[in-house]
Each structure stands twice: as C-alpha cells, then as structure tokens.
Computed example of a mutant assay.
Amino acid sequence: MPELDLTVSSADLTRAVCDIPSVSDDETALADAIFAAVSPLAHLEVIRDGDTIVARTQLGRAQRVVIAGHIDTVPINANLPVREMVEDGQEFLWGRGTVDMKAGVAVQLKLAAELVDPRVDITWMWYDHEEVAAELNGLTRLAANRPDLFAGDFAILGEPSNGQVEGGCNGNLRAIVRTHGVRSHSARAWIGDNAIHHAAPILHRLSEHTPADVEVEGLVYREGLNAVRISGGIAGNVIPDLCEVEVNYRFAPSRSPEEAVAIVREFFDGFEVEVVDLAGGARPGLDAPLAQEFVAAVGAEPRPKYGWTDVARFSALGVPAVNYGPGDPSLAHHDQERVPVEQIDAVERGLRTWLSNR
C-alpha cells in the first residue's frame, strides 16, 4: 500500500498525494493511505465512511471550523507522475490533481498532523467522488450517515483559488434538451423527419445568449449557459429520430435551484427539457465573524467562485463557507495542470497562522 509521510514539506506531500492515482470511482488507494497516515495521531479522532476520511480535534474550544478537500480527480491524460518545472522563473509542480485539488489536500494533511493545539476545534474532511454527479459525492453519503460531523461555525474548502479567498459559489444545473423526428433511409430523406435539424434553434438561442453578471453581497458572479454535448443519429444512412443537446447552466447564488430550473425551461420553451443534475450555489459567507477574522489573517481580497464547490453543502446547513487553496482554477482539469510551489507554501502559512493565533 502507498504510504504518506506527513513530516515532509507540503510541496513534497503534494507530489506524493498526486502520484497515487485517484480518478473518481478509484479513490480507495489514496483513502487507505490517508487513513493510515492520520490514524496514529493521538490528538485526532479518526472516522472512515467509505473512501471519506474525517479527523477531528476534541479540545472543547468555543468554536469549530471544518476544513475539507476532495481526493478524486478527473481522468489522467499522460500527466502523471508529477514533475517539477520552471516557468518565467517560478517553480511549479505539474500533473493531474496538482491544482484540483491535491495541493490543498496536502496542506490540510500536514496541518492536521502538526496543529495539536489550535485556537479552534477543527474537523478535517477528505472525501471521494466530488468530480461526478452530486448524488455520488462522498459528502452526500457522509451527511446521511453522520450529519453530526458537519457541525461547525465556519468552513473552508481547499479548492484552487490562487491562494486567495473565494466566497460562495455558483449553482450548477445540467439539462437534456431533446428534439424528435421520424427515421427513414437517408436516400429517401423526405419520408423521414430529421431530429438533428430540429436542434438548430436550440444552438442558435445559446449562441445568441448573453450571460448575466449578478452581484451578491458585494461579489459579482458570472453566469453561463452553454451546450456541452450533443448526440443524435444511429447510422450514416439513417435519418435520425432523436437529438439530445446537453446544456450546462452556472447560476448565481442569489438564485434558488427552483428558479434556475424555471429559467432553463423558459429559455427552451417549446422543447422537451429534462433536468439531470442540480446543485444550488452558496452565498459568499463573508459576514460571519470567523470568516472576517480569517480573511484579515491571510491578507486576502475576497473574490467570487464561478464554479460549483462543496461550500454549497455547508451553506445549506447554515455554516458559512469559503474556498481557499493553491492553484489557478482556470487550470483545473487542464492537461497542463500545474501549481506554483510558492502558492502551496503561502496557503500553508496562511492557514497555520490563523489556526494557531491566540
């Protein structure tokens, strides 16, 4: 079984965590390594739920902070093992997971081992299946099995944020928009009715759409409505009777999931629409006293998080939550995924300073 040494630097630990492949549905080896690394730590109570590992202090502090990170990645594409690279004089770690989000996980693991007497009680969560449908997410399962573990006054997700604080997150909706027709031989196309041709207005509406910028509690969230996949047809000589356009709607956290569904159905009025995945967003969460202390301690200028993250789960439970982790979000899932070593060190310093300060 691969082993993790929590005494090495956060950068070296990032390399070790990344070099244990953990594409969604294949996280067990990394979960085993994390469980083995934190279980001997006497100051932590360690709980395992599937491939989700929870480790928490029980010091009787007046406040508790939950700090979480997902351990799965999108598929590898010839970008492991991790390698070092220098670009414009800056040192990077290059490879799958370095940005999204194993550098953040590595920082959390190192601090979990070393912070034996923090200023607040801490619940550390490392969970599986974040990169796939919401119902598969390890936190969904954990919330059903152990809702008590989510108790806290503030939460931090180690999602990539360039070492800055990103408040809240957009909501995420996926829908299938369908058109129907009649099959026939393509040599006698006039007998049939081409479902793919009927999808042209769907694509036209999307190409003409201007997404909204929505201000929420001082942060401006950028929405997006895009076709992400299209399918139709069964053979090269058959007029298709079905076409499906998969659409992704990223909506501002001021909109409820129900409002998002209504917007998409209205936008595609006249077409069959099936919502296949839906997760609400999270408001910035920066008005909580602990959040303000945290932002001040790390010296950050809060920004909006455009993508969906699990801050939404904590927000829904009444726990204000922010994103704070090393890595450029625009490189998440990119084949040239790479994280500056300086950002890994900076995030470690920021969290350590805030959690240790009396």
Rank of each mutant, 00 (worst) to 15 (best):
E3L: 11
T7R: 03
V8M: 01
S10R: 04
T14Y: 05
V17T: 02
C18F: 12
I20D: 01
I34L: 12
F35N: 01
L41W: 11
L44W: 11
I47S: 05
R48A: 07
R64A: 01
V82G: 02
G89W: 10
F92W: 11
F92P: 02
L93Q: 03
V99Y: 09
V99M: 10
V107I: 04
V107H: 04
Q108W: 12
L109Q: 00
K110Y: 11
V120T: 05
W124H: 08
M125E: 00
W126K: 02
D128W: 06
E131C: 10
V132S: 13
A133K: 14
A133W: 13
A133G: 13
F150R: 00
G152N: 04
G152K: 00
E159Q: 11
V165M: 01
G168L: 08
L173A: 04
G181P: 01
H185D: 00
A187Y: 14
A189F: 11
W190S: 06
I191Y: 15
G192D: 05
D193Q: 11
H197N: 03
I202R: 02
S207Y: 14
D213N: 08
E223H: 09
G224A: 04
I230D: 01
I230S: 02
G232C: 10
D241E: 15
E244Y: 13
S254H: 06
A260K: 03
V264F: 03
F268R: 00
G270Y: 15
E274N: 07
G281I: 05
A282D: 10
P284L: 08
L290H: 07
E293T: 11
V295S: 01
V295G: 01
A296W: 12
A296D: 09
A297D: 05
V298C: 03
E301I: 12
E301F: 08
R303L: 08
P304Q: 06
K305I: 14
K305P: 04
T309H: 13
D310R: 06
V311D: 08
V319C: 04
Y324D: 03
P329V: 10
R338E: 06
I344V: 09
R352E: 04
W354V: 04
W354P: 02
